[in-house]
Structure formats: structure tokens, C-alpha cells
Amino acid sequence: MKKSSALVPLIVSLILLPCTASAQNSVTIYGIIDTGVQYLGNTPNGHIVSMESGDLVPSRWGLRGTEDLGGGTSVIFQLESGFSSTNGALGCGIFCREAVIGVTNPVWGTFRAGRIGGYELQNDSFSTDPQLMNIFGVSTLVRGRNWTYASNTLEYKTPTWHGLTVKGQYDLTNNTSFNSGNPGSGPGQLYGPQGRSDGIELSYQHGPAYLLVIYDEIRSASGQFDNVYQNSRSILAGGTYNIGPVTMYGGFQHLSAPQASAEGYFANTGAAPTTLKEGTGLPTAVDQEWIGARWNITPAAAVMAAVYHTNANHGNGNANLWTLGGTYSLSKRTYLYSEVSLVTNSKTSNIGLDDGYSDPYGANRNDDPLSGPANTRTNPNFGGSQVGFVAGMVTHF
């Protein structure tokens, strides 16, 4: 109760700021609400029908503001909080999606500092995915690696020069060690603690073509690249090309964790032998490719289709993801969406239709004779397939 009481005057005071702002200054309240119903088949305990928040775009609300300093320079800030529209709970604490302040100028660019949160560079990869930020898409086969978060961030973005824009991020560890971080300073990837992380992004727009290249690295709290799906290096290249009402999509992503260890994947070393498929080792590299298209049938209706493929080294096999989705706009701010997907795995792979939070790397317990059948995972067993369907509504305010 004390925490809730303390937040009320803060939020109220922020909302009232526009009342005292001059014509050159502004504060805007904004948000997105995404609520849908999801079906997942062939989980270890049968099928699941659930109500979900943010299956297409994360539900959120926030405040953004500017102060004109003159000469084209402005101070900017943004506070953003994620939440579940199914139960009203905060995603990871107040304003954990973003809490930044910065300065911008059309000549020399934009500098921001603070909690970048869900706007870590890798999240821009969704612009090369025909399914956008859908839960079944470019993040699925890499077990949520593209849903990265960042704290203590310094970010610089250039102006656009003849179609080219460069953006860089560097995340301080707030620690005496250059690479390792404070375990209490998270959340990082999948809301876990992280060490030093950084990255650079180049995007280029020319006529109907859009190209994107992103390099980022996220270290563990001990400063290691020890989990290819969480604490790893990533290089991603993708793009789109418009042909009338059709937009083509494609891309490639390589993940690398040369220091992969049991400690990086599991709670302790002793757990590793009972949670790995026989004949496999911890993956240190993963490759993903995808291709797809979005067809704007009418100004209100669109259909998206894509296929994704991934392969993990050290005997961890490969998987394919097939998706078909659609959106229909009811207005400029509100639209409906749906998607049906199928993932198929080779005999040593068990990737499921999720975003990495409930299907991290490792065996299902009912594939593990020592741990027994108890299982909370949603991904299929090794060599299995899984079908999923989601439908929902999104509104912006």
C-alpha cells in the first residue's frame, strides 16, 4: 500500500504538467492496449487456451515531453510502463520499459540517457519481420533473444543523411568491473541481470527499399557470453522492398556465445546432464533466416505470411516456423489481428511457439527420467511440433 500511495502523487503531478507548459513545451500521454486469446497445442501437458496481453504489440502507457531551448534544440524525456491488460499487473516495475532524458537537434542528432528498457537495439529487428512484433515471428526460433532490455544506457542517433541513419548504444555496468554488472541492476534479457552490453545499428531507406544491420552484445552479470539465447553476440541483417501493395521481407541473424557453460543456462552445473538431450552439448552458435511478405489488400486489411528456419550447433538440431496472419483496421487507432503458426523440430530440437520466457533452452521434464513428469514449460518435446493460434484487438491512445 505504501508503494501505491507514493506513486499516485507522482503520476498525478506528471499528468498535470501540460497545464503549466508554454506553447513551446509539451507533455503527451500515450498508450497501447493489446488483448487477445491464444491457443497452443502439443504442450507437455496438453493444449492451452489462454487470454493474453501483448501478443502483437506490448501493452503499455507512458508520457513523453519536450522543452524548446531555441535554435532547433530541444530537451526531451520519455517515461513508459508495460502492463498486462488481462490482470492490470505491471510488467517489470513502474517505467521499466523506458525512463530517459535527452537533447535533440535536427542538425547534429539525438542523445538520450537512462533506462532504454524495451528499446534496446535488437528490438528494431522487428521492422524486418512481416509479422512485426507478433509472438509468433522473428523472436520465436531464437527463444526471445530479440526481446532485449537495457539499463544505464547512453544512446546517440544521427540525423538521416541521404537515407542513412546510424544509432549506437552503450550500457554501463555501474560496477568496478568493466564487463560484469551488479546482479541487482537488472532486468536485462528476459528480465535477468546483465553485465556490459552495447551495439550499433545502420538503417538505409531509398525509394521502395529499406535495409537494416544491427550488431549488439549482451553479457551475463559475470561479464560472459555464456548463453547463446540470452548472453551473446548478435549480428542481424535484413530488409524490406515495396512492390505496389506488397512488401517483401527477409533477413539473417547469427548468435554467438563462445563461453557457453552449464552455469549460463541452468541454476547449477549438476542440473545440466539431466536437462540435455543425449548426444548434444551446449549450443555456442545459432543461425536464423526468414523470408515473407505483407499484402495490403485494402487500406484497412492486410495479410502476412512468412517462413523462418534456425539451426543450432553441437547437435541441437534445427527448426522451421510457418506463419500466416492478418490485420483489419476499424479506425486509425484500433485494429483486429490474428495469426496461425506451426513450428516443426528435428529430433534434438524442442523449440516452441513462445517468446523465450516459458520455453528457454533445455529439455522438458517429461523427457528427463531423473526429474519426473512435472513440467510448466509450453514447448513440445524433442522432435515434436506445435501449432498455435492467436486473435486479438489493439487500440492506441
Rank of each mutant, 00 (worst) to 15 (best):
I135N: 09
P106V: 10
A312N: 08
A293M: 04
L56W: 07
F266P: 00
F178A: 14
G54K: 05
L56D: 11
V103I: 15
A237H: 06
T176F: 03
N179A: 13
Q131M: 15
D354T: 13
A312E: 06
N175W: 06
A301V: 08
F126N: 04
L336Q: 01
N313I: 04
L56S: 07
G65K: 06
F266K: 00
A23C: 03
Q122K: 12
E80R: 06
Q288N: 10
G62W: 09
N366A: 07
T104K: 14
Y308M: 04
W290L: 05
D68I: 05
G62M: 08
E201S: 15
F382M: 10
S26M: 02
L212P: 08
R333M: 09
H314G: 00
W322E: 10
N42V: 03
T376D: 08
T160H: 07
V394S: 05
T20A: 10
T66R: 10
G31K: 04
L7K: 11
E52H: 04
P258H: 06
N174Y: 12
L211K: 05
S22P: 02
T269V: 10
H254C: 05
Y357K: 04
G356I: 05
I33Q: 09
G144D: 07
V27P: 01
W108R: 11
G186T: 09
G184H: 06
F225E: 12
T86N: 13
P183D: 09
G270C: 00
T165D: 13
S346E: 10
S256Y: 14
V27T: 12
G168M: 14
A306R: 01
P18G: 04
S358H: 04
F252N: 13
G317E: 03
R115W: 03
T334I: 07
I48C: 02
A221F: 09
G362Y: 01
F397V: 03
P373L: 09
G168P: 11
N152V: 06
G195Y: 08
N268M: 00
N175M: 07
G36W: 01
F83D: 03
G184R: 05
I214Y: 05
A293R: 01
N379Q: 15
L172I: 07
G184I: 11
F266Q: 00
Y308P: 11
V286T: 12
P106R: 06
G88C: 01
S4P: 02
I214V: 15
N231W: 07
G192R: 15
I76S: 09
E120D: 14
D55W: 06
V49H: 11
H206A: 13
V213I: 15
Y210A: 13
S338V: 01
L164G: 03
E278Y: 02
Q224E: 08
S220I: 10
Y191P: 00
T148K: 07
P208R: 02
M133R: 11
T110C: 05
L321Y: 05
A306K: 00
